[in-house]
Amino acid sequence: MMNFLWAGMIIISIISSLSIGDGDGIINAMTQGALDSVTLIIQLAGSYMLWMGLVNIAKEAGLMEKLANIMKKPLSKLFPDSRSAVAPITLNLTANFLGISSAATPFGLEAIQELQKSNIDKTTASDDMCMFICLNASAIELLPTTVMSLRAASGSNQPQSIILPVFVSSIASFLCAMILCKVLRKR
């Protein structure tokens, strides 16, 4: 999908530039974009390391498991057909909650494998799978680490002011996904 999006963006821009007779601008804009990406990464690196460092302290102090233990019981109600998948699902959602998406993905992959074990038709998504994917797609974030880092790098006075609104709106989409999946279940 990104393939067509990216190609489309480049081709449309080149055609549009040429039609207004701005041929030189094309290469200038491309070089400028490449240059901007390096500036962005360097600015981002500092605060990203800060947050990843702090979150890792929480992880090594066992807070992630602790949080996962609290969430296990209510979550197991949402996945009645696949008990064994609840543990990786909980860890996946907890990692998302703390803003470490790189840690969330391996747990998520483990979860989907476990869900597949209790799936009857192996090429069709089970109800539990849909629930997992939809909850994951609207994951609640307590610390939107990447966005906060980018805001700090862009010179915001209050990079952390988005924590509460992000929390509220992700809870709304999480609840919506949960309710819709419950309603659409077969039984």
């Binding site: 963006m9 821009s13 080149i14 530039s17 207004i20 804009a29």
Partner: peptide
């Protein structure tokens, strides 16, 4: 691609 989209 963004820079190109904007400038064009």
């Amino acid at each position: 691609s963004l820079s190109l989209l904007r400038s064009s």
